[in-house]
Design a binder for these strands. Structure first.
Lengths: 291, 291
DNA sequence: ACAATTCTGTAACAAAAAATACAACAGTTA
DNA sequence: TAACTGTTGTATTTTTTGTTACAGAATTGT
């Protein structure tokens, strides 16, 4: 068969108009089930009108919605008919006796970057490297650690980096004065927290750019995000894996450092001096939790 | 959710008339997919007429064909969303034009586990799975995020998990009463922070077991640690990479969950209930088929 | 700031699919 | 064999759904 439609949509995401992209994300978020519903329901789920759905499938090259659904059914049928063949595919990767969990994590990182739209990464890095903008980072129950990690690094290479943490009630205080010069970076995977979604939406409404790092295109934040970086998180374990998310974070950090090497160098040096001057023997200043 | 429709059809196969049975078999042969097509196509595939299909779904208890399809979609969606099912979407892509940074990170993860002494991992997991012990997690400037992440997960599957955070001055308060029944997990990479070292050393002196997750440079903590898990952190960037550390953390988390599945399951369920009881706000609208 | 172009939703329309009515048929019983 | 009961398909109606036309909104370029 031809290559999976989901991959094509993912790779061609840039060709779509903004509302068509909403349709694409809605479909990817619940693939392929969302596409097997009626046009009207699909439209409602995506937050767009019916004609937009039709234009979306037309741009994908289908003469009509029925043909599109036919393709989805065909893919689904062939996928469901070879469940065991597929799952054994997972263990083919390790040449040696590698833990399947580890093998999958390695694969997730590779696959994540193989499918990241190239322009998407560059766009985000350009945004984050712009020091005239203020960066706000926020994450969910587990992914907050990633937001913190990224903030700790970005803070070193550029000014105006804020990690949104602590009491949820206080989050919205931080939205005061947020506007088109601000960037919100959201780490959000399944079990999306409504507070985070509201935070991102409010910020977007005030004109801020939203960058979303998420699992396979599912977060509702995707609708209002300027950039979406989807990562593979599935592993043979009750948990989702954040390893690929961490890899994305590090690529962003490296990219921002490289985007302006002199500035990064200078700031690192200055911080080094400050640290030594303040306290040569003990690392006595505010520590990891210094918010 | 109610029990799967496919089961019900199986059990009630005798209730159907002979042509309805044809419909049932056509559906079972291509399980949910055949039912997501139009009535006419379904009928043709089953070799019966359209009204027979309608009578078949009516006998199953659905008011109309649309409701029947809705049920199929709902089941399908929940089935496809389990992590393991989603992993079948994965497929290998040749590592052609990969960013060197990403390539190195992928390699780091693989190499890290290739060189981890097997018994070491198992020993740590056994230690962390023992709920009679109290786990204290601590990290450095950047790696504190990993300590936090690990703590957030462990806390769910077992009791007595503490993330040592906040003001450094308060750290040592937590050492009161720490003894041979405690485990200290230290995340520490180059630029080892003296405070963390002292913390670990003190705990060890009081009889606690120390687990160290570190880079290959081997933190000074290594001398007093019961277990050392070294990770590859070098990447072509001014920073060290924590991706392999994250991978280690996740393997530990998965291991502890798997070491005592019933306990993990029970605690997760209890937390779920608690969460629902606490937070009745259901944001259910955007994705009709999800949840 | 204006014009041209592209995008997007509302609303009307056409196509299709689902639902129904009904007659023919098969099997069973008297 | 005749009458009854339950089953099935054809033909028709009704409803839903997909599609298209068009006008307003938004965006882009000059």
């Amino acid at each position: 068969m031809e290559r999976p439609l989901i991959e094509e949509i993912h790779d061609r995401i840039d060709e779509f108009t903004s509302t068509e992209r909403k349709a694409a994300y809605a479909l990817l978020a619940n693939y392929p089930v969302q596409g097997l519903d009626t046009v009207a329901n699909f439209a409602k789920a995506a937050g767009v009108s019916s004609p937009t759905i039709l234009r979306f499938v037309a741009r994908l090259g289908f003469p009509g919605f029925a043909d599109f659904q036919g393709r989805l059914r065909k893919e689904l049928a062939s996928q469901l008919n070879t469940p065991l063949a597929r799952s054994s595919e997972l263990q083919q990767v390790p040449p040696d006796n590698m833990d399947p969990l580890v093998a999958q994590m390695v694969d997730n990182v590779r696959e994540t970057f193989a499918h990241l739209p190239k322009g998407e990464l560059e766009g985000v890095i350009r945004l984050l490297a712009d020091e005239k903008r203020t960066i706000h980072l926020i994450g969910g129950r587990f992914t907050d650690a990633l937001a913190r990690y990224t903030a700790a690094h970005l803070r070193i290479v550029r000014p105006n980096v804020i990690h949104v943490a602590g009491q949820q009630g206080n989050w919205f205080d931080q939205l005061l004065g947020v506007g088109s010069k601000d960037v919100i970076v959201v780490f959000d995977i399944r079990r999306y927290q409504t507070e985070i979604i509201r935070f991102a939406e409010t910020a977007a409404a005030q004109g801020a750019s939203v960058v979303l790092v998420t699992d396979s295109w599912m977060s509702p934040v995707g609708r209002i995000a300027s950039f979406v970086l989807p990562a593979r998180v599935a592993v043979p374990s009750p948990w989702d894996s954040s390893t690929a998310l961490m890899a994305i974070a590090e690529v962003l950090i490296a990219g921002v450092s490289a985007a302006n090497p002199e500035r990064s160098q200078k700031r690192m040096q200055a911080l080094e001096d400050l640290r030594n001057g303040h306290d040569p023997s003990k690392g006595g200043e505010t520590m990891p939790d210094g918010e």
